[in-house]
Simulated assay, not measured.
Amino acid sequence: MRKPIRRLLTIFAALAVALPSALAVPATAAPAASVVSEKRVDSRTLDISVSSPAIGQNGNVRLLLPDGWDTRKPGQSWPVLLLLGGCCWSDGDGHESWVQKTDIENYAELRKVIVVTPIGGKAGYFSNWKQAGGPRWEDFHLDEVLPLVEKKYGGGKKRAIAGLSMGGFGALSYAGRRPGTFAAAASYSGTVDTQLFMLGPASVQAVLLGAGLDPNGLWGDPVKDSQTWAEHNPAALTDNLRKIPVYLSAGNGDAGPLDAPGTGFDVREKTIEGMSQLVATRLALSGGKVQTNFYGKGTHAWPYYGRELKNSLPLLLGALGV
């Protein structure tokens, strides 16, 4: 009788091992980002809408197309310039702002690259939010949008990044957080030191409050969660940023030649100038390739951003080999 019992025990043991795996529910793959619509605005402008798990909604992206794009051959690609907007827009949702507010469509240099201008949230700060269930803007831009541009629209592996104001922060933060992703970065009047004394955290949290958002939802409390703040702060990422060419510009807050008559002093731009100068100095002292244009009179305004983008193109496109 012992042998049959032993056989039964052996069978039960085998079943005990096999049943859990046999009964287990197959893992469901996480949904992938996908393009859900396209709209050709004009001969050089294509708007796409991306279904994004990272931000939990459809995110709009504008592509400014290079010469020859419509007759491209299979596998043909162009370098990519990821161009980020600022915060708190009141018309549209931000992805159109660079084309609406400047004349970048007329920049001959940009006919050799694909310019990608995505939505970034009114005060998204180009980050994966610490708040539970918050948007993951970094994942949207770098892990969803860029791969889709490469897969479907001829984007290449050579990339540069630039932005204005909050987007200037985003450009340097992304380049510092993701070494090797971008060959060059530029900030135009960007909030590039979010931990500068009390000014940095106060300026960030004031923007969040103004947008009706939890001021601690982004990176947490500035003191208790200072490490999380530092992990996104360009001024704390200079060890990585010094490895690529960086362009920094800002005005001093006084009304300048591109401001409307009667424009008053802009304390925000003055603060940003100080931040940018500190980061530029830190980069220079660490051996970084930094180019600056602290142009004196000028406020936090679109005419300066467009001009500074054009001024920075030799640095950005030179790094792309264009």
Rank of each mutant, 00 (worst) to 15 (best):
R307W: 14
A33C: 07
W302S: 03
N128P: 06
A22T: 01
G180A: 13
D239T: 12
A280G: 09
S90L: 13
G296E: 10
L237Q: 12
G75D: 13
L164N: 07
R62W: 08
N233S: 12
Q205L: 06
H141F: 14
T299C: 10
S187R: 02
Q227P: 00
S37I: 08
S43K: 15
D143Y: 14
P201I: 06
G86F: 03
L285Q: 15
R44H: 09
V279S: 05
Y153G: 09
S97R: 05
T117V: 00
S52K: 06
R7K: 01
F140W: 09
G168R: 01
T228E: 11
Q57S: 14
L199M: 10
M1H: 10
S51D: 15
D254P: 01
G170I: 07
G210N: 07
P147C: 04
Q205R: 15
R242Q: 13
E109T: 00
G92Q: 07
W302A: 01
V80W: 14
L278F: 14
T181P: 00
S286R: 12
F140P: 01
P147N: 11
V207I: 15
D143I: 00
I114D: 04
T28N: 02
V36H: 11
R40N: 13
P261Y: 08
P147H: 10
H300A: 02
T102M: 07
A14W: 12
G85R: 01
P215G: 05
S276H: 03
D93C: 02
